Every structure is written in structure tokens, then in C-alpha cells.
Simulated assay, not measured.
Amino acid sequence: MESFIRTLPKVELHVHIEGTLEPELMFELAQRNQITLPYASVEEARAAYQFEDLQSFLDMYYLGAGVLQTEQDFYDLTWAYLLRCQHDHVMHTEIFFDPQTHTERGIAFQTVMAGMTRALADGEQQLDISSRLILCFLRHLSEAAAFETLAQAMSYQEYIIGVGLDSSERGHPPEKFRRVFEKAHDAGFLTVAHAGEEGPASNIRDALSMLRVSRIDHGVQCTQDPELVRALAESQTPLTVCPLSNVKLRVFEDMADHNLVDLLRQGLCVTINSDDPAYFGGYMTDNFLAVAESFEVTKEEMAAFTTNAIRASFLPDEEKAKLQQRLDHYLQVQLHPIL
């Protein structure tokens, strides 16, 4: 199973590019930009990656993001992630980025976009990895701040396919951003939202009805509401689940307690993703392996996570078909070799 998973073609729909900042690159960029970090070494920084909840992680996450200053910094961050994608056989990725994390520090929106888009173009040309960008509003900031960020994004619709909602779920329900999402819809953006991670199942319902999202990011608390689970299965609304993240942030105490496989077997369109892999101990292959090691799953079930992700992606149908063909070919070779 391990060798099958390592080379299994994958699609990632839930990764925060700022959350791919490894300590080694953090220190390199801090030195480049003459920024002093509160850690004496890479090892000391990595040792600090122990989190009690989402907020304790976010505090570290924003500290790390502070080293990102220039277009080249954002290029280097994105390129390092794409190299991990290549290693993990990720065919396509849809990347979240948090412009407010940077514009609040005085970094221009243009600086962020220029570095990331240049790296993504190189990734498509040199690594054969397709990609899309999804701008996320920080839900702990105001509606007015979200509107301002949406206005900045209007000039970049060639690169930004959708908008999302992340950061602290508690105390910041979907309805806070209902009007922003309406304007985003009117402008032609697709929409997603983090819901049902640390917040209740009702946040999932509200994100679907109030924000009219195409996908739910996380969504694991849906099991609080059996009727919601049935509705999600019937509608095939995708859930972009992040197993290692959920355990690291104590959403589940242990991987064996996770509901991901059960939701798959109930017919929900669940996918496996890495969330903030530099902080949560693993990229895509690590997450797939963690699930396989904790549950009695078949190779077909593990491949179903990729099939679901292809279907749930924001790619045109013809590009989805090409990715599915690549997966089908892999499965044919792995599961039905010619004797």
C-alpha cells in the first residue's frame, strides 16, 4: 500500500501557501530581509510547532508570514511547494493565499501576486503541474476589510478563480461575510469557505445557503447533523478534508478517531489535503499514508480520494477528463497488470 500511495496521482484542493513555509526557508528569508526571528535555530522553530488549538497555530503562522517581503520571496515560497507537489505526484493544485496577511504589513497586493503567478507559470511549464489561485478573506478581520481586498482582486481575475474564507472560525460565522460573497459571485468568482472544523455543523449549512459556496473546506463536524450528512451525500458537495491538520489542532485526538473514511463510505465527496503542511507534519503523501495506516482501506478507496478531488476541482471538464485518464492509467497498471 505504501508504494501505491507514494506514486498515486493526486489533486490538492486545500493548501494555504503561507502554511508551506518550512523553517529552513523562513530563516533564509529572514536573513535575506534582515528580520530577527524569536528562535535561535531551525530546530528551535520547529520545536515550537506544538499547538493547542487553531488560534495557537495562527499566532505562529502570522509570525512566519512576516518574513515574506518581496516578489522573489513569494516566488521562492510557491516554487518550494510545487517541488513538493512534484515529489508527491500532485497533478493539479488549487492554492489558498491570504493577501490581508501581507497588505496589513504594508506589502503590496501586486508584490504577492507577481511572485506567486510567476512560480505557478514555471510550475506548469517545467513540472507539468496545473494550478489555480483562491483568495481567502481573514474572517477575524472586518467585512469592510474583506470588501477592500475583493476590490484589489478585481484586476487579477485572470489568475484568481475563486474566493474563500479562513482563519478563526469561532465567533466569525459565515453570515458576517454574506454581502462580500454576494459581490464576489456577481463579479464571477467561484466561492468556498472553511466551515465545520472547530465550528459547528450549522456553519456548514450557513456557508452553503448564505455564501453559496461550491465546496466546504474541512466540514468534518457535519456528523453532528445526520440530516446534513445525507444532504451532502445527495448533493455531492465536496469536503476538502485535512487529516493531519485535524489531529494536530485537536479536532480529533487521534487519526483513528477521524471520520474521513466513514464519510467516504457513506458516499460523500471527500478529498484528502495538506492544509498547512509545514506546520502540521506532512504534505499530500504524508496525509494519504496517515489515513491508510490508521484504517483498513483498499487501494480503490485511496484512489477514490483523487477521483473526488478531480471532480471537485475548478478545472474545465476537458482538463478534468485528462487528469482522470492519468489516474485510470495508473490504476490499470497497478491493479490489473498484464500477466
Score class of each variant (00 low, 15 high):
F4R: 04
H14K: 09
G19F: 01
L21E: 03
L21F: 05
E22Y: 08
P23C: 13
E24M: 03
E24G: 00
M26C: 15
R32A: 15
N33S: 13
Q34R: 14
I35S: 11
T36R: 14
P38Q: 04
E43C: 06
A45E: 13
A48R: 12
Y49L: 12
E52Y: 13
S56I: 11
M60R: 14
M60F: 12
G64D: 06
A65S: 14
L68F: 10
Q69V: 08
T70D: 11
T70F: 04
D73P: 07
Y75E: 00
Q86S: 09
H89K: 07
V90M: 12
E94Y: 04
I107Y: 09
T111A: 04
D122M: 05
G123C: 08
Q126G: 06
Q126W: 08
L127R: 00
I129H: 01
L135E: 08
L138C: 09
H140W: 07
S142F: 03
A144L: 07
A145L: 10
A146R: 01
L150T: 00
A153Q: 05
Q157R: 13
Y159T: 04
Y159V: 10
V163P: 00
V163T: 03
G164R: 02
G164E: 04
S168F: 11
G171D: 13
R178K: 13
F181I: 09
E182M: 13
K183S: 11
H185N: 03
A187L: 10
H194C: 00
A195Q: 03
A195P: 01
N203E: 10
D206E: 10
L208S: 02
S209P: 02
V213S: 05
S214G: 08
S214H: 08
R215G: 03
V220M: 02
V220P: 03
Q221R: 12
L228Y: 09
A231Q: 15
E234M: 11
T240R: 00
P243A: 06
S245P: 03
V247W: 01
E253F: 11
L260H: 05
V270E: 01
A278Q: 11
G282K: 00
T285R: 10
D286S: 14
A292L: 03
E293D: 15
V297C: 09
E300S: 14
E301L: 14
A304T: 15
T307Y: 15
I310A: 07
S313L: 07
P316A: 03
A321P: 05
R326G: 15
L327M: 04
D328F: 10
Q334W: 10
Q334N: 15
H336D: 15
I338K: 14
